[in-house]
């Protein structure tokens, strides 16, 4: 991920990682504003996979108390936009 990625590009990335973890999710039917686990079988293991994938992709160290911000797709996109820019600025 590069600092100048658009929100749409980041969203595509989030969805890609989500589908890698949970291939049964239908992106077209997914409500991006609602927590993923309210819509699909998505347990703590799946979430951990998801968080690891995002963290690696964006070179982010996501602290545990930020997990709740990653519960929905939109939340994850917002979180990444906010933090990756800061991350990039630090470089």
């Amino acid at each position: 991920m590069t600092p100048n990625m658009s929100a749409d590009e980041i969203k595509a990335l989030v969805l890609e990682k989500l589908l890698q973890v949970a291939p049964d999710i239908e992106p077209a039917q997914l409500d991006t504003a609602t927590p993923i686990r309210d819509q699909y079988d998505f347990d703590s293991m799946d979430f951990l996979h998801f968080a690891i994938a995002l963290g690696q992709q964006c070179q982010l160290e996501i602290p545990e108390h930020d997990y709740r911000e990653l519960q929905s797709v939109d939340g994850a996109v917002d979180y990444l936009v906010k933090h990756s820019n800061g991350n990039a600025a630090a470089k």
Binding site: S44, M45, L48, A51, I52, G55, E61, I62, P63, E64, H65
Partner: peptide, 17 residues
Amino acid sequence: LEARNTQRPLPERMVYA
């Protein structure tokens, strides 16, 4: 657990299970 996980990178964090 939280205190422990704070000191670790994501892949090494533990779930309460």
